[in-house]
Every structure is written in structure tokens, then in C-alpha cells.
Amino acid sequence: MIFSFTSIFLLISLLKLTDESLSKYHTMETVKKIWFFYRDGFREMTVGKTLWMIILLKLFIFFVVIKLLFFPNLLSRDYDTDADRADHVRKELTK
């Protein structure tokens, strides 16, 4: 995630803006440029709004409901060290 946002940041700051958009953006700082780029993009969306709702709902179901309630990482949850995890798996695989 962090990488994505950093890269988005770097990328947009390096954007070669067209003449038309230059006049609109040229005085703004990089951060503002990114903000407007995304804000305008989202505003102009039509079907995209429904899609974003679906994406957000989906991420909520996946990460909050499914992951937290039903899919713990068993070895991380039950053991504190890698040595303990290895020990558990060794016993499991040789029982």
C-alpha cells in the first residue's frame, strides 16, 4: 500500500501536463496537483461511483468480516516465535 501511494505521488509529480491542464495546474504545488487529479477523476466518474461502492463494501467484507472473524493466521495467533511455530509444524508432520 505504502509503495502504491509513494509511487502515485512520485508519478503524478512527474506528470507531463498538457497545455490545457498546465494553465489550470501550473501554479499549484505537487500535492495539490495530485489532489485535483484524483478529485476531478472521481467527480467525473459515472459508473465508477457504483464500482467504488462495491469495492469498498467488498474490502469491508473481505478484511473485516471474513479475515477477522473467520480466517486468523493460526501459527501467528497461537505461537510467539518462529522456533515455536517450526516446532509445532514438525510435530504435526511427524505424528
Binding site: F3, S4, I8, L15, T18, S21, F37, Y38, D40, G41
Partner: peptide, 26 residues
Amino acid sequence: GILAFFMESTFVAVMFFGWNKVSPRF
């Protein structure tokens, strides 16, 4: 996770939001 995901998420945004905002070649 690191490489492809960041490539995708960055360039997908430009692809959809970038018409008229970035040069055609970009």
C-alpha cells in the same frame, strides 16, 4: 505485492483519470 501492485494501482489511475490531463504519449 510490491512491484506489480504498485505499478497497476498507479497506472490504472492515470489510465482512467488522465485523459486530457496528461500528454497522449504518457
